[in-house]
């Protein structure tokens, strides 16, 4: 479980991007941070992992306050963290397999064979058996994302962060990646936090949803509650596409029927 208490982040240029954000990300669930482009999702995520230092407030990883940690302690904690970046961030001087093996090379004393086996296992888990020896530049965007997921989970992290895992991907591949992350989360009971502005993902895997608007946490709930919201910016966000207006109509229709039945 990760607790964020009253986090505020102002950049050097004077811009306050996070304003007094408090929330809880639960273990064993896919926690989603949603919001418009530029609302501060990436900044929130990078603040939670400590790439950005927040100006005030605290962030607790199962009770461990990272805002008070020295670099050494932070580095130890980070070995429990896996992260998928918005642009994949694979090392382009290494092959896909070497990328996934990298954390093992860096932090374990396993022998070469064990490391390769573990890396291949993770690559197999994300369905990338065929391209393990390719360079990151030689594989597609979706494959890069999956390779980055494999790298993020290779050390068996307790906390998994995914920044826009399916931006720029077709709906089918997006779904595959969403499901993959959700499965991994349940399988290993990890605390997963996902940034997205994709309503499809929200409806698929939104077990705990935090809505950020302009750097403020404006709403929190599950995918089943999201259509009943009366938070105005959230409504605007959801119903930006006509599809969801229709879905809401249908949702209300069945909802009303249910309540008439009960009477």
């Amino acid at each position: 479980m990760i607790e964020v208490n009253h986090a505020t982040k102002t950049f050097d240029d004077g811009k306050t991007v996070l304003k007094d954000v408090s929330t809880i990300f639960e273990t064993g669930k896919t926690n989603l941070i949603i919001g418009q482009s530029g609302s501060g999702k990436t900044v929130l995520m990078k603040s939670v992992v400590g790439i950005f230092r927040i100006n005030s407030g605290e962030i607790l990883y199962d009770g461990r306050n990272i805002t008070l940690m020295k670099r050494k302690e932070l580095n130890m904690l980070r070995r429990e963290i896996g992260m998928l970046f918005q642009g994949s961030a694979l090392f382009d001087s290494m092959s896909v397999l070497e990328n996934v093996k990298f954390p093992l090379d860096m932090f374990t004393e396993k022998d070469e064979k064990e490391k390769t086996e573990r890396a291949l296992f993770c690559l197999n888990r994300v369905g990338l058996d065929e391209v393990v020896n390719h360079a990151p530049s030689q594989i597609s965007g979706g494959q890069q994302k999956r390779a980055a997921i494999a790298r993020a989970i290779v050390m068996n992290p307790k906390y998994l962060f995914c920044d826009e895992p399916n931006s720029g991907l077709d709906p089918k591949t997006s779904l595959v990646i969403d499901k993959l992350i959700q499965d991994i989360t349940h399988e290993f009971n990890i605390t997963t936090i996902i940034n997205t502005h994709d309503m499809n993902s929200v409806m698929e895997i939104g077990e705990n949803i935090v809505f950020i608007s302009n750097g403020v946490k404006a709403w929190q709930g599950t995918k089943d509650e999201i259509f009943d919201t009366d938070c105005e910016p959230l409504e605007k966000f959801i119903f930006a596409s006509n599809l969801y207006k229709e879905i809401k109509k249908a949702h209300n229709f069945f909802h009303d029927k249910d309540s008439t039945k009960q009477k």
């Binding site: 580095n75 642009g87 961030a89 090392f91």
Partner: peptide, 17 residues
């Protein structure tokens, strides 16, 4: 280039200096 493509962040997040 490693900085703008977040590869440096990726190293930091693994706990690498």
């Amino acid at each position: 280039t490693m900085r703008i493509t977040e590869q440096i962040d990726a190293l930091d997040i693994m706990g690498v200096n």
